[in-house]
Write a protein that binds this DNA or RNA. Structure first.
Lengths: 245, 245
DNA sequence: TCGAAATGTCTATTGTTATAGACAACTGTA
DNA sequence: TACAGTTGTCTATAACAATAGACATTTCGA
């Protein structure tokens, strides 16, 4: 692991940001687990082939995200290290999927509105032309850290009051249950990735240039009737998906 | 869709790169399908709230990637617009998964070597301590465009000659078949995303700051014995995954 | 108590990124 | 043919990113 080049100049991405992204990834991968701290600034500077000040800019960005905390005279300690795993299967459930990975989970309702279904939604949810849907904007946290931002649509009138049910329980599964739907299954999940936009940065507490994993998922009731279509956004440095077949 | 802010200053990511990424994404999402061209430079500058020269830098980067081609007096034409879909299931096959999305596919063997299995590989492939594996570095293309870079490991001696078999056929499925394994299934797939590294940029023809989707997948024979573990990297702006349950 | 090793702060300089304005060159249409 | 609309090129300036070096401050252990 001598002079690990791997940072590019004149690429439109500042060196300090490339280095910050790589250190964040290394922390998430447990590469510094032995010491509980990041290597000294001089060592990182040598490894990436940059000036110490450039490394300091990178570490300052990570400190800003509360991922590390520098202590004068000691080093730069790792505060948080996490990559939550979400299993994707027929029985995908957000909270159960997390299992023992988080002590406490939270589901916040940011906004809800009834609206006319778009063409795409009509196709996905198998609705009649001109149907209405409820749209929920939610933010989910695990142990206080945001792990996903989702926009979900539900057919109306069947789930007209799901916003209230979600607000009470903070769980889609619970909300469905309180509206008389005791079981549902995941029909399909599309996964892509993109850069964080302004809303991601705000809600998911990310910095510019961060990556979000985007899923488009469809859930149906036991009879196969679609009950929910959702677009969810997860911070890529804190989350991975596992598909078990 | 008035003054779409959504580009961040002083974020460590140059404005021209953020804008290039957003235009590339918009093209992939078919937002300019009506005209077949990108909006005029002045319109984009107004929309992103930047100078025209900054937009030109972004478009120059996309032209470099052969995504657009500017024509003086006319506008900036969209040359390529693609987002391949890869289904992930028990029967995930690279080439069949592409189906009609590509006229022609290609599998190149970049490198192969026999090596000692790492701890992680011993666990994943259920090998005995000290076992050896064959490592294949492959690059896959669809219609001439690179769509994935993969490192795959296979148990030895069962698949000792798989490199030759792959080189002949350009297909893992075919290579398995020629070694007497007529069927296999996908056991699990982990999906994450990260920034493109130097090798990604070279092999996948990406520019710095681009996003790659990373999968870690395990295949097993019909008896459940693991036959392949692979880490694959896909350009996120050209690829999405679909999990059908 | 001293020194090694680490982070913190300051000044100065250079190269890249972004803005600004002006005008040239090219295309299609009225 | 004239013109509106588009991309291409040039110059100049300001803001940000990166390098360089020096020295202060803090902590831990010999």
């Amino acid at each position: 692991m001598a002079t690990d080049s791997s940072v590019q100049r004149q690429s439109g991405v500042a060196l300090w940001r490339q280095i910050a992204d790589r250190i964040r990834g290394a922390i998430a991968n447990g590469e510094y687990d032995g010491t509980g701290r990041v290597p000294p600034e001089m060592a990182l500077a040598a490894r990436f082939g940059v000036n110490r000040h450039t490394v300091r800019s990178a570490l300052a960005a990570l400190a800003q995200e509360d991922i590390v905390r520098p202590i004068q005279g000691i080093g730069t300690m790792i505060v948080r290290k996490e990559r939550l795993n979400f299993p994707i299967s027929r029985r995908t459930r957000f909270i159960e999927g997390l299992g023992a990975q988080a002590r406490e989970t939270e589901g916040l309702l940011l906004q809800s509105r009834e609206e006319l279904a778009s063409e795409d939604l009509i196709r996905r949810l198998e609705l009649a032309e001109g149907s209405h849907v409820v749209r929920l904007e939610t933010l989910r946290k695990a142990d206080g850290r945001p792990v996903s931002r989702a926009t979900a649509w539900f057919p109306v009138p069947r789930f007209a009051r799901i916003d209230e049910a979600y607000q009470r329980s903070g769980s889609i599964t619970q909300a469905f249950r309180s509206l008389g739907l005791s079981d549902y299954t995941r029909v399909s999940t599309e996964v892509t990735a993109t850069h964080a936009d302004a809303a991601d940065m705000k809600d998911l507490e990310l910095s510019a240039g961060a990556i979000v994993l985007v899923t488009r998922s469809l859930n149906a009731d036991p009879g196969g009737k679609p009950v929910q279509f959702a677009i969810s956004r997860f911070p890529a440095d804190r989350v991975q998906f596992t598909i078990e077949n």
